[in-house]
Write a protein that binds this DNA or RNA. Structure first.
Length: 421
RNA sequence: GGAGACGUCGCAUAGUUCGGCCUAGUGCACCACCCUGCUAAGGUGGAGUCCCCGCAAGGGGACCGCGGGUUCAAAUCCCGCCGUCUCCGCCA
């Protein structure tokens, strides 16, 4: 939820944000009207309630013979209070619904427009060239007996797979390397639940436009999370936390589940787009004043990971219309995938400012002692998809794959993944 | 899954019998000040969260696990749910 105060103080800022996202600008005026109605209704109700409270004391203190008359008056008052309360409740609900559907206000500088309107901030690293016809990641994975798609499909259906042998080990190596990187940066590891309650799922802003991306278990009214961000954001829900000595930083390790509805025919080959994968996710709770600096820090860690693994990449500043409802700004790091001749997203980092924390009621105490919402940020540090870029980038003519130096300790010193005869 | 007990302002508790003097008492911890020459003891005062009105001072409302209900009036009575603990059963 956006700051209702902002709606009153600077509605134009909110309008511009909605405009940049190509979302409804009228919603802003609707929200302002709903806010006015809500406050009027509350004021009316509370005045009546105050009268009722005072009257109640009168009744209680009155001598027995005067009570019946007073009670009769009180009954009249009570019905008025009840009606006013109903009106106030409805106004409150309407306001929450309208304001809740306004997306987070974007940060100054975020490019306007949709998916294709991103701005490339930089390209880093040399795109690999080969003296042979490079194989795609699936072909390599099969040569190494590392990826088994047909059996994944047999067991679970399309977009499922088995990671086997060095494939399984490579994923674990990557994840553990990422975890250690996060540890060195002071993050606290957290292995999170992957099933969450509706209020947590909606609190993180995932039940909006893309609700059909999410697996839901009706029998238990639980959602399968598409990223540990959900559980990490819910971790401190309804709490007042202390970020005065620096942010709370967590590294969440979890399996992620995505329905990939509406992506039929897209990336059907290999493990680029799958229903289930592993991810190591960074998450920060921080004083909103420091959020943008933290965003840069998370991005720097992501870039450091890709660089250390010898991957060529670009960093893009996602356009407003392509941001999730919670994000005020989002940077994606995309690795070069040789056989596709394209950059593909490996990481994403979002600054959600106070949007999520308002919904989830996560606050800190400011210098004045007043409570205020914290800012939340998240960013990927590794996922299964990285294997695609790793395998393709470091492949050799004979089908073997060089293991980037940082991963070797996690593979018992293995330097080359050799094809299985 | 079955039976029972419990859920109160940071922690611990009182209050629930018989609804109104509970705008929730007390102890500990906490903050400020006072007293005492020092880590102790004592005294005074303060202190929660959310919302509304107001430039402010201040005023008002809500919150006793959550949600409904009864009533002029609910921490207190009724219903549902959630959670914790104990016992039993079942499964690992």
């Amino acid at each position: 939820m956006i700051d209702p105060q902002l709606l009153r103080d600077d509605p134009d800022l909110v309008r511009r944000s909605q405009q940049a996202r190509r979302s409804s600008v009228e919603l802003v005026d609707e929200a302002i009207a709903a806010d006015r109605e809500r406050r009027d209704a509350i004021t009316a109700f509370e005045a009546l309630r105050a009268e009722q409270n005072a009257f109640g004391k009168l009744v209680a203190a009155a001598p027995k013979d005067e009570k019946p008359a007073l009670v009769q008056q009180a009954q009249q008052l009570a019905s008025e209070v009840k009606a006013a309360q109903l009106v106030a409740g409805e106004a409150e609900e309407r306001f929450a619904r309208v304001v809740g559907s306004i997306q987070n206000v974007i940060i100054e500088g975020v490019p306007e427009g949709g998916e294709d309107d991103f701005v490339t901030l930089r390209e880093v690293g040399e795109k690999p060239t080969f003296g042979f016809e490079p194989r795609d990641h699936l072909a390599i994975g099969e040569l190494l007996d590392a990826i088994d798609m047909p059996r994944g499909v047999k067991v679970s259906g399309s977009r499922f797979y088995f990671l086997k042998g060095v494939g399984a080990r490579l994923e674990l190596a990557l994840m553990t390397y990422a975890l250690d990187t996060a540890l060195d940066a002071g993050f606290t590891p957290l292995i999170t639940p992957t099933l969450v309650k509706p209020e947590v799922m909606s609190g993180t802003g995932f039940l909006g436009a893309h609700a059909d991306e999410i697996y839901y278990l009706p029998a238990d009214d639980l959602y399968l999370t598409g990223t540990s961000e959900v559980a990490l954001a819910g971790y401190h829900a309804d709490e007042i936390i202390d970020v005065s000595n620096g942010p709370l930083r967590y590294a969440g390790w979890s399996t992620c589940y995505r329905r990939e509805a509406g992506s039929y025919g897209k990336d059907t080959k290999g493990i680029i787009r799958v229903h289930q994968f592993q991810k190591l996710e960074m998450f920060s709770y921080i004083d909103p004043a420091d959020a943008e600096a933290e965003h840069e820090r998370l991005l720097a860690m992501q870039e450091g990971m890709l660089r250390s693994l010898g991957l060529a990449y670009r960093v893009i500043d996602t356009a407003a219309g392509d941001l999730g409802s919670s994000a005020a700004r989002k940077f994606d790091v995309e690795a070069w995938v040789p056989t596709q001749g394209a950059y593909r997203e490996l990481t994403s980092t979002s600054n959600c400012t106070t949007y999520q924390s308002r919904r989830l009621d996560i606050r800190h105490r400011g210098e004045s002692g007043k409570t205020a919402p914290v800012a939340t940020l998240n960013g990927t540090l590794a996922t299964t998809r990285w294997l695609v870029a790793l395998l393709e980038t470091h492949q050799q003519a004979d089908g073997s794959v060089l293991v980037p130096e940082p991963l070797r300790p996690y593979l018992r010193g293995l330097e080359v993944l050799e094809p299985v005869a």
